[in-house]
């Protein structure tokens, strides 16, 4: 039982890291980026290529996945995304679906359609028993990394100068610009960071979630659930939502496999009906 809880937490933490980039672009920049999963997938494939083709250590792959996808995010933000900040949501949706389709086909073309496997370093493999709870070493690793990131993120957004500049830029770009804040630089940095986190999540999740060209579509619904249920007004909302989702999904698949993902979708729709702004948001907020 506790093992399932533990696995669920690991899964949830991972979902949080994967989805919080989306939560940032959606909540702070009001951009519906359905292609967020494509960045995560890119992170996963970077890891696969580095490890399997070039034999680079897993630990180096993680920062590399972050940096490369962040860079890709920055480039795309500069060239394409930024033109659509003011566009109707429909345009953003169509654009990001287009990106998803392209990324799926491109990965399929370059890497083939099969599941990709990675060999984790030996010290991360296997399980050990702790107070009767079976603890997967890799899952523990994921939990630790994600927890550190979550705390760092929360502090970065609320305590640092960048965080307040970002919030100012989002609240009123014109005023922020008047105050000498470089709004477009902040946006590109934020977008890149969000994409990078997605990439890192993809790298961490390559082993736990599986990795194939359909990744962006397969997990889109999970990201969206995290963001919609958690709301986009804070970091803690999506964090709690991701944890709940992770635990519910793992437990659901274990105890009532015949229901599959049914419960999760139903809960999401229910939440959307009852609390359109998310479960943990203050009603009437931006």
């Amino acid at each position: 039982m506790l093992t399932i809880l533990f696995d669920g937490i690991a899964y949830g933490m991972l979902l949080f890291i994967l989805a919080c980039g989306l939560s940032i672009t959606l909540g702070l920049m009001n951009f519906v980026n359905l292609a967020h999963g494509a960045f995560a997938m890119a992170g996963g494939y970077i890891t696969v290529i580095m490890m399997n083709r070039y034999g680079i250590s897993f630990y180096w792959c993680l920062p590399a996945a972050f940096l490369v996808t962040a860079l890709a995010g920055a480039v795309l933000e500069r060239t394409l995304y930024r033109h659509l900040y003011g566009s109707p949501h429909l345009d953003q949706v169509l654009f990001s679906i287009g990106l998803v389709f392209m990324s799926i086909a491109a990965i399929d073309y370059l890497m083939g359609g099969q599941q990709q496997l990675i060999n984790l370093p030996p010290e991360l493999r296997g399980r050990f028993e702790f107070l009767g709870v079976g603890i997967g070493r890799y899952r523990l690793f994921v939990i630790i990394i994600c927890a550190i990131l979550a705390v760092a993120l929360q502090l970065a957004l609320t305590r640092t100068r960048f965080g307040s500049q970002l919030r100012a830029a989002v609240d009123d770009g014109r005023v922020a610009r008047g105050l000498g804040i470089n709004v477009s630089l902040i946006f590109v940095a934020t977008f890149a960071f969000g994409s990078g986190l997605g990439g890192l999540g993809g790298a961490l999740g390559a082993d736990l979630l599986g990795l194939d060209p359909n990744f962006p579509l397969k997990f889109l619904i999970y990201f969206m659930i995290v963001v919609t249920v958690g709301g986009t007004s804070s970091i803690s909302g999506p964090f709690i939502a991701a944890l709940l989702l992770g635990i519910a999904d793992v437990a659901g698949k274990y105890y009532v496999p015949q229901l599959g993902a049914f419960i999760i979708y139903a809960v999401m729709i229910l939440v959307l009906i009852l609390r359109p702004h998310g479960l943990f948001s203050r009603e009437g907020g931006r």
Partner: peptide, 9 residues
């Protein structure tokens, strides 16, 4: 699918 995506964009 790639081209459809490109057309959308």
């Amino acid at each position: 699918m790639f081209w459809i995506g490109l057309i959308l964009i």
